[in-house]
Design a binder for these strands. Structure first.
Lengths: 192, 192
DNA sequence: CCTCCACTAGAACGAACGCTCTATCCAGGA
DNA sequence: TCCTGGATAGAGCGTTCGTTCTAGTGGAGG
């Protein structure tokens, strides 16, 4: 059956994505992935003959889409860009707390561990960040900001969200995210 | 000899700090550390009977001091807080480029990998972030900002620097750091 | 009914992991 | 001179790593 086939592949990617998010690249074993995904080692290497790296790259792309979805949801909450950004920080804070501070950014840990040593993964990471920046940039331009301002602000918004997510996870507190929302709103406010 | 003794311990901590920075916690083995530090496995466990976790916690504290030194150097470059922050981003960018994009924040990777599963390390991480925030907060207060504003801005400055450092490392470009410097300067400018 | 092939299943491989253990070295005090 | 104890040295423990390999399963097409 086709559904079973894609079902297994999908389960493997989802499990990998979640494990990479929580344990990082080196801390996650293929056997743990196959166990968690309720698939066998044979299935894993059948779908991902490129091994751990190919699997991780695919999981990064999955995390990319996941985070992009959250961004779009937050940005759609208000026409005002400043309010839209704080909606994003609110969503991130809620998700982080709901997971008991376990699920931060889905790709940061893997990105840092593999930088400069796993080109396939790095490429997926770069694409994810570019995707996220583009989503924010589009929102800012739609709100009337100039092209250069929107592009630059979008980059800082994403970078700052990353930093705040990290801080919130470490401190086990929503506060860094809420604070960042307020400061980003203030920064955006200086552009009108 | 006392110097030889402390010399070995110091070499182990330095090597561990550098390796954790570049490869993360799970990606770094004790044997690699002892090799890199030109010490034997026996010496490592002699000085750090708590094993890898104790060693990592000590290395985090070393990285804490290192980053704090850079912060102090940058902040001391100008009496104006906005200029001082951009001096920090400049120093970070230079260091990152000089290491060929290998040496980002000394503790981020390890922090993310061990969050919620290695209390000894987590404690050192929390202390490091608190230390860095305090350094920036003091500078902002000395520049005339109110107590609450200074505290909040300091937190955002550190978080944003972290995010920018991450982005710069991944993109192999100084640009995210310089951009962040400009945006942080602008944000600080709204408080006078 | 048989063939075919995508998929499942997991044993086995060499290497590396963190850590324990014993043995040795050597400077300083009795 | 002998003793003590911090420091060095590395073999070896059991486990897990990523990967390879062969064997088996089951539904679709002829």
């Amino acid at each position: 059956m086709k559904t079973t086939t894609t079902g297994t592949r999908e389960r493997i990617v989802r499990a990998t994505s979640r494990l990479l998010q929580r344990q990082g690249y080196e801390g996650t074993g293929i056997k743990q992935i196959s166990r968690e995904a309720e698939a066998t080692l044979g299935s894993v290497y059948h779908f991902f003959p490129g091994g751990k790296q190919e699997l991780a790259a695919e999981a990064i792309r999955h995390g990319d889409q996941e985070f992009a979805g959250l961004l779009r949801e937050g940005l759609g909450a208000s026409p005002d860009p400043a309010e839209a950004i704080t909606a994003c920080t609110r969503l991130l804070a809620e998700a982080l707390r709901a997971s008991e501070w376990q699920d931060g950014c889905p790709i940061t840990s893997t990105a840092l561990e593999t930088v400069g040593r796993a080109p396939v993964i790095e490429q997926a990471v770069v694409a994810a960040f570019a995707n996220w920046r583009a989503i924010v940039e589009e929102k800012l331009r739609a709100s009337g900001l100039g092209a250069d301002d929107a592009r630059e602000l979008a980059a800082t918004v994403i970078n700052t969200l990353e930093g705040a997510e990290l801080a919130a996870q470490i401190a086990r507190s929503e506060e860094p995210l809420h604070l960042t929302g307020r400061h980003l709103a203030r920064l955006i406010g200086t552009y009108r």
